[in-house]
Design a binder for these strands. Structure first.
Lengths: 141, 141
DNA sequence: TTTGTTGTAATCATCTTGATTACATCTATA
DNA sequence: TATAGATGTAATCAAGATGATTACAACAAA
């Protein structure tokens, strides 16, 4: 199992919006060329990012831009925007047998631990902003 | 996306082995009744756990048992045993355009952050043992 | 030798992902 | 106001993963 690539595609998209903000019209076609996927994938990605209030997209004339300050957008925001994980990260088997002492209590015993693990992952993503990534990117150029 | 339920099934299976170690012949059928899945699923699960050195299974006569001390088996061991995640947790889009400054560096900029997030998740799983879960379970009975 | 089990292959339906085509809609501008 | 170039979105599609299930050979203890 893997978190779908639409998450890294979305991050890549936002980096393109940051990097080319003033020098290019950042159309779905232009972004798609950098990411190397179909432009429709980018449009869907932008649609999610727009719904999350991260970008604005100009229908008709074309081009997208970041709405927030890069230091105010975390990887977690992006992760949520594109529904990388729906609800619980760990898929729990649906119907443990309540007539068995183990089956009856497995949820109570395990749920908290799994939520903690998921929270640790998400906390890490909350600690990284687009500004951090742009700094690293510029340093490499 | 979700981590497949075979992980929680595997944990449940191990808890059954712990709990009923001395009072029941823990066959795939018996375990399946507690987890509420097909016995073949349990056999496959046990096969993974056996390959990871966590359990031994008696072919023919039937029954499985935990090989290690419950305090020496972490959720991370189980997670790895059943291949909950193959390699990288985050699926990265395959071919960013190297002719684009963003596409060329997106891996360098992002990979470390994603690995750190995955590591945080796995560290959390390493901090929980079957003994911890059994303690919580017994407390509820 | 019989009985109850495990090991494993083979199918199957279902779901998700990501790619792609198609086309209606929109907007700046010529 | 017509047009050129974009976006928004529905509809398909192939590929892969998951979990359920059937079937049956191999095995081990009584």
């Amino acid at each position: 199992m893997q978190i779908p690539s639409r998450f890294t595609v979305a991050v890549h998209t936002l980096l393109v919006l940051c990097y080319f903000a003033d020098t290019q019209k950042t159309t779905s076609e232009f972004i798609a060329a950098s990411v190397n996927v179909n432009p429709v994938i980018i449009r869907k990605t932008l649609s999610c990012l727009k719904a999350a209030g991260l970008v604005s997209v100009k229908a008709g004339s074309g081009g997208a831009r970041l709405v927030r300050d890069p230091s105010e957008v975390t990887l977690f925001d992006v992760y949520r925007a594109v529904d990388s994980v729906e609800g619980a990260l760990f898929h729990f088997h649906e119907h443990p047998n309540p007539a068995c002492p183990v089956g009856k209590n497995v949820h109570a015993v395990l749920d908290g631990r799994l939520e903690a693990a998921q929270a640790a992952l998400e906390r890490e993503l909350q600690g990284v902003t687009l500004a951090d990534l742009m700094r690293d990117l510029n340093q490499r150029l």
